[in-house]
Simulated scan of single mutants.
Amino acid sequence: MLKNLSPLLSGALLSALDSMKDGETLTLVGSGYPENTINTPVVHLEDDTTTEAAAEAILSVFPLDNIHPSPIAFLDLAGEPYDVPDVAFAVNGIASDAELRRVPMERLGLDEFLDQARTSSVIVRVGSDAPPCAFLFRRGAL
């Protein structure tokens, strides 16, 4: 174990994050996500890992893009323009805390989300009992 490093950051996940280049995308998914439709390496976290815990661990070492207008996108299955799911609200707060700035986040419909996820460098899958959710994190420079 490394000092001050989340135990959720396994060797496989750290290696995947380290190999990513600026502008590449990581996809963080919960249950119900059709990961088998995308030909991207998948890192599975423990079954009891929540989306929020995974986001906090990843964003503690993963710099978000500060040039792109929205370095985070979330899959919006509800289609309600003024309703942000609790998990999306929480992940946005975690990202803003990690970046020490307000991080804009956009919502994407299923087709647009899947199109962008297909170009992801890695998919991180949280526990099976997580609420249906999915996020795209665009990597920035340190």
Rank of each mutant, 00 (worst) to 15 (best):
A95W: 00
A90D: 13
I67H: 08
E99Q: 08
L100Q: 15
I94P: 02
I58A: 05
V87F: 00
P81L: 06
A53G: 05
S70E: 12
L114R: 03
R107W: 05
H68V: 10
E56F: 06
E106M: 10
P81I: 07
R102P: 01
H68N: 12
V61T: 06
V87R: 05
P81G: 09
G79R: 14
E106F: 04
R102N: 09
E112K: 11
Q116K: 13
P71V: 00
D97R: 15
A53R: 02
L100K: 15
F113D: 09
A90C: 11
T119D: 15
A73L: 11
N66L: 09
Q116P: 05
A78Q: 09
D115R: 14
S70R: 08
E99L: 04
G79Y: 15
L110A: 12
L77P: 03
M105F: 06
A54F: 09
L59P: 01
D115A: 10
A73S: 15
G93L: 08
A78F: 02
V103F: 01
A53Y: 11
V87G: 01
E112T: 12
A117D: 13
D111P: 04
D86Q: 07
E80L: 04
V87L: 00
F62H: 07
D76I: 11
P69M: 11
S96G: 14
M105I: 13
A95N: 10
A53L: 05
F89V: 12
V87P: 01
L108F: 08
N92Q: 15
P81S: 08
E56Q: 10
D65F: 01
P81Q: 05
D76C: 05
V84R: 14
A88Y: 00
E106S: 12
G109E: 13
A78V: 00
E112Y: 11
N66I: 15
P63M: 10
I67G: 04
P63Q: 02
A98F: 08
L59H: 05
G93F: 01
R107M: 07
M105A: 07
R101Y: 04
L114A: 04
S70K: 09
P104F: 00
A95M: 09
V87S: 02
R107Y: 03
L114G: 09
L110W: 04
D97G: 12
E99I: 08
V87E: 03
Q116F: 05
L75G: 10
N92A: 12
A88G: 04
S96P: 08
R101P: 01
G93M: 09
P71I: 03
L100M: 11
E80C: 02
S96D: 07
P63W: 00
D76L: 09
R118F: 03
D83S: 10
I67Q: 10
P81D: 10
P85H: 01
F89M: 04
A55W: 04
A88F: 01
D86Y: 02
I72Y: 09
F113S: 13
M105R: 00
P104Y: 00
P69G: 12
A73W: 02
P69K: 14
A98L: 10
D65K: 05
S70N: 14
S96F: 07
N92S: 15
E80F: 00
F74N: 14
F113Y: 11
